[in-house]
């Protein structure tokens, strides 16, 4: 099984590496999302990103050759993801409406519009379905470098600001009283979530991106004793699950993204059992 996997390396190296880096990166960002109890936000932002890609498909016909199709799709994915994350963050801090209501609105509006926008495009619906279903095959070497860079930046950022970050996600009111600029931090977190999720979605699809965002962090939440430890455990869980899933997917000819998400979801069962056994 392992040797088969190594045999496929020359063909799929970039896809595997990009998939693993996306898993670790989103798991790290996902700790913040899960700690703030905003799991559905991940789905809404990912869906908004899909809408951005759908609009890019239509816009591609208008702009012609002036902008590279790949660049346009990536840019629109990030733009819509960041906008959705910022809108929901703004509503969280200026609570005229519940956070869930805003997130639900973003998710539903983006889901419906993504389909409507591409309905009359020759391959539009197929493309959107493909994005929603997820596939990591097709990632390029530049994707690998991009996600490696984002991973390093995110790790350094979390490492340097870990105490402030933990206070923010655990107790926003006290963070404000201690002089932390909560609004500014919320904006930075929202932009970073939109950026990482938008770029990941363009390369690996919605299911894989959303799965890597929330499932490893949920496993970490059930197995760790502190929020600080979650920042270590979630990326490790994501990376291990993705490595094992890609090897299995290669052997059994499964789609690797779905195999990875299924494995991460299965890991939740022993994690819950562990938490119950500990009595935590």
């Amino acid at each position: 099984m392992i040797s088969e996997f190594f045999d496929s390396w020359s063909l799929f190296a970039d896809s595997y590496l990009a998939g693993w880096l996306v898993a670790a990166l989103l798991a790290l960002v996902g700790v913040i999302v899960v700690a703030r109890d905003q799991i559905f936000l991940g789905a809404a932002v990912a869906q908004a990103s899909t809408l951005g890609i759908a609009i890019a498909m239509i816009a591609g016909a208008w702009v012609g050759e002036s902008i590279d199709e790949h660049t346009l799709a990536g840019g629109m994915a990030v733009l819509f993801a960041v906008a959705a994350a910022v809108v929901t963050a703004y509503h969280r801090d200026n609570a005229k409406e519940s956070h869930e209501a805003t997130t639900g609105w973003v998710f539903l509006a983006a889901s419906a519009l993504a389909i409507l926008v591409v309905t009359h495009s020759p391959h539009g619906l197929d493309e959107v379905q493909h994005l929603l279903a997820s596939s990591i095959i097709g990632a390029t070497r530049s994707d690998v470098w991009l996600f490696a860079s984002l991973g390093v930046l995110t790790t350094v950022g979390v490492g340097v600001t870990h105490r402030t970050l933990r206070l923010l996600v655990m107790d926003t009111q006290t963070a404000a009283a201690m002089g932390v600029r909560v609004g500014w931090w919320s904006l930075v977190i929202a932009v970073w979530l939109g950026l990482t999720l938008g770029l990941s979605l363009r390369s690996s699809g919605m299911l894989y991106s959303f799965g890597c965002l929330v499932l490893p962090a949920l496993v970490a939440k059930s197995t760790c004793r502190t929020v600080g430890a979650m920042f270590f455990v979630a990326p490790v869980v994501a990376l291990l699950a993705a490595v094992i899933a890609f090897v299995l997917a290669n052997h059994y000819d499964w789609p690797p993204a779905q195999a990875a998400v299924a494995l991460m979801a299965l890991l939740m069962i022993p994690a819950w059992a562990w938490r119950r056994w500990r009595g935590a």
Partner: peptide
């Protein structure tokens, strides 16, 4: 504060909780 708005499903210890007071 009057009460801490900590998410009750988040794992934390007394050590981690108190050390957060050192922010800034």
């Amino acid at each position: 504060p009057q009460r801490c708005d900590l998410n009750p499903t988040l794992p934390t210890t007394v050590r981690e909780f108190v050390m957060l007071g050192l922010v800034g």
